[in-house]
Amino acid sequence: MAGVRTPQEKWTNRVAIVAVFVALAIMLTPIYWIAATSFKPRNLATTIPPTVVFQPTVSPFVKLFTKRSQLRDQPTAEEYAAAPWWERMVFDGGEKVVRNGKTGEVRTSGYGDRFTNSLIISIISTILAVSMGTLTAYGFSRFKVAGEDDWLFFILSTRMLPPVVVAIPMFLMYRVVGLNDTHLGLIILYTAFNLSFAVWIMKGFIDEIPREYEEAALVDGYTRMQAFFKVVLPEALTGMAATAVFCFITAWNEYAFALIMTNRNAQTAPPYIPSQVGSGLPDWTVIAAGTLLFLIPVAIFTFLLRNHLLRGMSFGAIRK
């Protein structure tokens, strides 16, 4: 609210600003701590008092992508000198990089594959959900559909179920058709999950495009199909982009289905990262590095989406 007048109001305003910055600092501390930990040497990740100033290292990222084993004997000076910089980092941590016995190739950890799986599954399911969702939303927006509200409720209700409820029968069905632990299996699940969201959000966006645009195109001799592709679709592009980012983030972050339906081949990053904690003392620097890389795409997308967050998070109920 503009128009701060009395000295008392001025004072309240100042207190509020300070409070906002304190709240912001508290809210962002966990995220900052992930980022900071991912650049720490292992011995500085768990110290009292917490280490805030340190010499950053990328060794957690090296460890994240390689398979390592405990170092039994110190490497000889020649071995150490011959090793590339990243291998030396692993030596410095008291470990060695595991190599293939015959070819000498470096063995990689599972993280890269899981990250790629996450990318493939999220991108393909997003494309499917947004394209099908846009068509359906157009159908509901522009044509008479008997029992329209009931259909829209039905579409929404499929999203409201707890994932485990849906996962029990899906797991059994996938076992019959051989879709457990496959990319296609997860893509189908995430498409179904995001499709309902895409229909609801896109219907809002398409409702806002004036019908007169298409009517004019039809008068000009376009067919309905041409009018849709050449007039409506370009107008709906911003909405589609925002919807796509939301669908991507949902699929990217999804945990329960991935935990139940995959174990190796098609496993995505969310179930993989917690599985690395295990028992004993976990290397939090490596977990932080894996977490940070995983969060970066979403953080970027959040900034791109900032003007659509309200609509997206409320299923289109509230528009700005």
């Binding site: 609210m1 503009a2 701060v4 305003n13 509020a16 600003i17 906002v20 709240a23 912001l24 809210m27 962002l28 966990p30 995220i31 701590w33 992930i34 930990t37 990740a45 768990t46 983030i249 990217w252 972050n253 945990y255 990053a269 969310p270 179930p271 990262i273 917690p274 904690v277 939090w284 977990i287 932080a288 977490t291 995983f294 969060l295 979403v298 953080a299 997308f301 959040t302 900034f303 900032r306 967050l309 998070m313």
Partner: peptide, 30 residues
């Protein structure tokens, strides 16, 4: 109210809800 860099602050405050509950939640263990 009138706050400097309000748009940026709001977006930053919204960041946690966009992140993966499983992955970020895990880090709270530390």
């Amino acid at each position: 109210r009138a706050i400097p860099a309000k748009g940026l602050i709001t977006t930053l405050l919204l960041l946690p809800m966009m992140l993966s509950m499983a992955v970020v939640g895990l880090f709270w263990k530390l």
